[in-house]
Design a protein around this nucleic acid. Structure first.
Lengths: 178, 178
DNA sequence: CCCTATCTATTCACACAGTGAATAGATCTG
DNA sequence: CAGATCTATTCACTGTGTGAATAGATAGGG
């Protein structure tokens, strides 16, 4: 539950209510997808149920009620634990490109799968160019630079995989036909 | 709904019931996470509700009832549509490594975040070595080869990103402190 | 002055995705 | 013939996320 941990991280800097948490998130993680309000309150409820977070006040200032939450000692422990845990990459390799190629081979033939892969490669190359160009802007904030770095590196990884896959589509097709 | 499309793909080869679909999936996607039975039946129900799939028979041969499903014309259309749709990569860049680094910087300081990143790097290097070694086995089935290729390419991408990030942790920390 | 638009803050109903255990008939094996 | 195993499905539950609805407060414009 990454969103939960992100909220805990934000709360570690001081108590806040849901609305502000959403805005703090979108502010501090500008490259990430904006958090929906519903998501924030649902996550807070889960965190509360787990004892990681506690409502400390209900204020009514300039508007509707706001419930202010604070991180608990347990929550802090959970948070540092999460930060210190090394993410184990790829227990099972979830490869959406391979999934689609395999399904394409199930449904039709090698030529078709090849075409789809090639179109996907073109799209990736295009995205790659966009991110590379974006990075030339010297005023780009650091978050965006790192986001672009990440995108470029992984687009390149996908491209490498697609090259490798294109060379083996025929063999894959045979493996599937049997 | 990738699982739904995979099921449609399997059904495009001929009608089947849930139990066999699960086994066909695990067979044809050996690198993927095995599908839980519950997931299969739930997905079939969703596909049915959407008109992509239809129960065509209830057999009772050598055991309990089995409901056989077949793909519909609509389902076939949906399937080829999905296959032909190019996946748009990274509308929003979801970068779990960056998320954790940012949260680490919110909670503590640059040195701490650096340590976490370095440990993550070590773990990635280790995984990289494992997959590289696995690939030396000449009898490795093609699915596994492609899975290893994918894993290696993306582990490398992560490693590249981590190098880049390590050089900028200080700057990131400052951006966050403000 | 009041009407509407906007901002603040939360809630609700809903959908999808996935897990683990339960159920239950049939067959095999000692 | 008792228990294990295989076949096939269902159930209750959790987590995650979306979009719309609700509702109070305030600011600006005709």
């Amino acid at each position: 539950m990454s969103t939960g941990h992100v909220l805990l991280g934000l709360l570690s800097r001081g108590q806040q209510h849901g609305y502000d948490l959403k805005r703090a998130h979108d502010d501090r993680f500008p490259a990430a997808k904006p958090m929906a309000y519903g998501q924030v309150y649902a996550s807070l409820e889960r965190l509360h149920r787990q004892g990681f977070v506690e409502p400390v006040a209900v204020q009514r200032v300039d508007g509707p009620d706001r419930t202010v939450y604070a991180i608990t000692a347990t929550g802090r422990a959970e948070l540092t634990d999460w930060i210190e845990t090394v993410e184990t990459p790829f227990v099972h390799v979830a490869n959406p490109l391979a999934t689609k190629v395999t399904v394409a081979l199930l449904v039709t033939d090698t030529a078709y799968a090849t075409t789809c892969l090639e179109r996907q490669r073109a799209s990736h190359l295009d995205a790659m160019r966009r991110y590379t160009r974006a990075k030339t802007d010297p005023s780009l904030p650091i978050h965006e630079v790192l986001a672009a770095d990440y995108a470029i590196a992984h687009l390149d990884a996908d491209l490498q995989w697609m090259e490798s896959a294109l060379q083996r589509v025929a063999a894959l097709g045979e493996a599937i036909a049997t």
